[in-house]
Design a protein around this nucleic acid. Structure first.
Length: 800
RNA sequence: GCCGAUGUGGCGGAAUCGGCAGACGCCUCGGACUUAAAAUCCGAUGGGAUGAAAAUCCCGUACCGGUUCAAGUCCGGUCAUCGGCACCA
């Protein structure tokens, strides 16, 4: 058979469509499998070769599961709100909805060309009012439960996008999206109380089948730490509360530090002899962007509060207080006790300001560097704690502080609440109004979706407000509660909103009574296998777990965790080994590959390129190898004879079925393909194959290269689609060769290979080994010290 | 600095348990076919030494050391690269 990929691909893609081959069934009595890939942002550039890697991988998984009898849900959709579309709309004066529509059409045709077995009947689009109706609905529920609140806060503001960013969107002090400088700005923002779920977001990870690095990254991001809050008296009478994870070192506290923004700076203005210097320092600190702050990590700065001293509650010592920007106002209490002997930052600061360093845990040389080890070392210079281990001392001091009422055990998190407002047009409107009398009021559910109004200009206003704020007609409305005059919220939701629950919508995408029917959710959820990028670990993945947990709490879904399994793919790099990007000029367009080699080759190559979890550089030469494989696979039809099967080939086929079956489950797509290549090489050596065997081969190849597999399967006289055929089983007996090759060694050095029956026992093996020419020669005149025989593996004779 | 991962031929990468290192593919070289080229097919292909040849020997999985009959794999240490976090007390 000649491999004319163009006509073959068109033929089978049409057939799959016509027969609705990949539509998930609503028969809830069937065993289900829900495979999910992250839906793309439909950018103007179209697909790039990085996209199909995870799509193809889970397509392979889905196709195999389908063939194994599962009712498979493998959906696709569009995460279509977002800045690039909006910027494009501004520049070209086209409505972002039109831009989105065009981009989606392009993406969809590109994906379809790859023969991915998505259930297109369940396609969702976050910008569709019928979809964002439910995004808004979830927000209203969060608001109703007190998990959405408005707060004046110091936010990250991108100077170029003119938009507020979540902490997660600021990378290295610059905007994750455009790379521009991020500054701090005080703004009134909607916040989501993700911190209320911090413990559950950590604790519920344990039983999940997530790759380890995802778990650890989330745990580190949430940053739970256990310590104590301790009150220090001051010479002005007021108590200064600090947070510490090392209450055991309390006797070593030789000074204190408060954040520049700490409220006591203002409160103590009258008592401070150097208030002006402190205020100047604070002004300086607030001017610094995150970028500058991180750049200036090297050197500690600060100003001593002149006129107020703190009193160490355990020994009554008076110690100085400083302001310094190495203490953050947003974490803990914004104040610390400094123990220079056992904290590197405090140590640096103490050295610079010449403050005393008192050792309270023995084991280091605290005058030359901070000793931070908590595993070894016993307490010293610490009164009643002396002699205790650090862990014991922690318990003892917390008990002491609690009894005296000067301290309490406390858990803190690095995780902050989620800044949920964006001053942008192309996002979901926040469905709230501000009434002069009633405050913030939810609009009635019956008025959802609250649609985005058409505006003249999509540009943010000069003050950084959303373009919606200029729409007086839209903004001015009446309060749903009292009927009085009210104004709509003009901020929109961040892009992460729509993607925080889309996996639920796929279960029942057309429902207009609920985000999805309960039975549909109960049947399909949780997602059995979710693959996506590592870059979403602390963003989308965390946010969507949070929303899913909230929806669990209010009874919408029945599972505590949305994803049973999470994996992550490596990036596809440019030919030069660098990240693919337009600016580097190393982007490969999948359309070209599909045109020149066909979709099956493209799919196969992306799976063969290397370890699925690791980054791999694109290599146009290697693609040819995959094309060659498919050419030769098509050529197998010429070798079909009614007879001619050898027993060895039969064993190879069963072995290959076993290997491919296991490798798909293990994400080892590259070795599955290698095994099929090896099998095919063997068929060419044998020179013949039966129609039945070739049908089976086509069946296991079909998840990888579905079009040519269908064609060959049909040519072998099979009825129906191979895509819906039964996944072949293998006979365990037949996966074992009758004879095996065993390496024989003397003193661990290979001397030769013997071929023996698979059942050969130790004695037979040893006897056969000793008969080997190289062995008899090697053993001559030597004393045998030890004979090691491992059936099926090795014979090693140790001589002297 | 902390957390996580990774170091194997010219290249991408294989190697459930410690048991023939380099599967499979690419590149390269030689040959066949061809007027020629492409495509295709056959063969060679980790490095080195000896040999006319068949063959034989040595070295080799980042580096140093250890355990073992046997180490890419286990243990201790070092170095390098990548990713994440980064003054979170």
């Amino acid at each position: 058979m000649k491999y004319d990929y163009k006509s073959i691909e068109a033929k089978w893609q049409k057939k799959w469509d016509d027969e609705n081959a990949f539509v998930a069934k609503n028969d809830y009595s069937l065993p289900k499998y829900y495979a999910l890939v992250e839906f793309p942002y439909p950018s103007g550039q179209g697909l790039h070769v990085g996209h199909p890697r995870p799509y193809t991988a889970l397509d392979i998984v889905s196709r195999k599961k389908r063939m194994q009898g599962y009712n498979v849900l493998f959906p696709m959709g569009w995460d279509a709100f977002g800045l690039p579309t909006e910027n494009y709309a501004i520049k070209n004066k086209i409505h972002p909805a039109i831009v989105t529509e065009n981009n989606v059409a392009r993406f969809k045709s590109q994906l379809k060309a790859l023969g991915l077995s998505f259930d297109w009947s369940r396609e969702v689009n976050t910008t569709d009012p019928n979809y964002y109706k439910w995004t808004q609905w979830i927000f209203l529920k969060l608001f109703e439960k007190g998990l959405a609140y408005k707060k004046q806060m110091n936010v990250n503001f991108c100077t170029s996008c003119k938009v507020v960013l979540a902490n997660e969107e600021v990378v290295g002090g610059v905007c994750e999206r455009c790379g521009s400088e991020v500054i701090h700005k005080v703004k009134d923002q909607w916040m989501l109380k993700i911190t209320a779920y911090a413990d559950r977001l950590i604790d519920d990870l344990a039983p999940l089948d997530f790759i380890e690095r995802v778990k650890t990254q989330q745990i580190n991001w949430i940053g739970r730490s256990t310590g104590a809050e301790v009150d220090f008296d001051t010479t002005v009478g007021e108590k200064l509360r600090v947070y510490t994870t090392r209450p055991d070192t309390l006797f070593g506290a030789t000074y204190m530090v408060i954040a520049p923004e700490h409220e006591f700076v203002e409160r103590w203005k009258g008592q401070l002899k150097n208030y002006d210097a402190i205020a100047a320092y604070r002004a300086d600190a607030s001017k610094k962007s995150d970028f500058e702050r991180t750049e200036l990590v090297k050197e500690k700065t600060g100003v001593k509060l002149d006129g107020v001293m703190a009193i160490n509650p355990v020994n009554g010592n008076q110690i100085p207080i400083f302001v310094s920007d190495y203490v953050l106002s947003g974490y803990g209490t914004g104040a610390i006790m400094a123990v220079p002997a056992h904290d590197t930052r405090d140590w640096d600061f103490a050295k610079k300001f010449d403050l005393p360093i008192i050792e309270v845990v023995a084991g280091g040389d605290v005058q030359s560097e901070a000793f931070t080890d908590v595993e070894t070392g016993k307490m010293v210079n610490s009164d009643f704690l002396n002699g205790l281990e650090v862990a014991e001392a922690k318990d003892a001091i917390i008990r002491f502080l609690t009894e005296k009422g000067i301290g309490v055990k406390k858990i803190n998190y690095k995780l902050r609440d989620w800044v949920f407002s964006r001053q942008r047009y192309w996002g979901e409107p926040i469905p709230l109004v501000n009434c002069e009398k009633c405050g913030w009021v939810a609009i009635p559910e019956s008025e959802l979706p609250l649609r985005l109004p058409d505006v003249d200009s999509y540009e943010p206003t000069a003050t950084g407000e959303s373009p919606l704020s200029a729409m007086d007609e839209w903004v001015n409305c009446s309060c749903p509660k009292c009927g009085g005059a009210a104004k709509r919220e003009t901020d929109t939701m961040p892009q992460w909103a729509g993607s925080s629950w889309y996996f639920l919508r796929y279960c029942d995408p057309k429902n207009d009574m609920a985000l999805a029917a309960k039975e549909a959710l109960d049947y399909w959820m949780p997602v059995d296998w979710y693959n996506g990028g590592m870059e979403h670990t602390t963003l989308h993945l965390l946010y969507s777990r949070f929303w899913a947990k909230f929806l669990y709490d209010i009874g919408v879904v029945s599972c505590k965790e949305p994803y049973a399994k999470r994996t992550s793919h490596g990036m596809i790099l440019g030919e030069n080994g660098e990240k693919m990007s337009k600016s580097r000029g190393n982007v490969v367009n999948p359309d070209d590959i599909v045109r020149d080699y066909g979709a099956d080759t493209m799919r196969l190559y992306e799976m063969f390129i290397g370890d699925f979890e690791k980054a791999a550089p694109w290599n146009p030469q290697s693609i040819k190898g995959c094309k060659r494989f498919l050419d030769r696979f098509a050529g197998l039809t010429e070798l079909v004879k009614g007879h001619g099967t050898t027993a060895a080939l039969d064993v190879s086929l069963h072995k290959t079925i076993k290997k491919v079956t296991a490798d798909i489950d293990d994400m080892k797509f590259n070795t599955a393909i290698a095994a099929m290549m090896a099998f095919m090489n063997e068929v060419y050596e044998v020179g013949s194959i039966t129609a039945e065997e070739l049908s089976t081969f086509a069946t296991i190849l079909s998840p990888f290269a579905p079009h040519i597999a269908e064609e060959v399967y049909e040519a072998m006289g099979n009825k129906g689609l191979v895509s819906l055929a039964q996944w072949p089983s293998y006979d365990e007996e037949k996966t074992v060769d009758q004879t095996v090759e065993i390496a024989v060694q003397i003193n661990g050095k290979l001397k030769g290979v013997i071929t023996v029956s698979k059942n050969a026992d130790k004695e037979a093996l040893l006897a056969a080994a000793k008969q080997h020419e190289a062995m008899t020669a090697g053993l001559e005149g030597k004393t045998v010290v030890k004979e090691i025989v491992v059936p099926g593996r090795i014979v090693n004779i140790v001589v002297r």
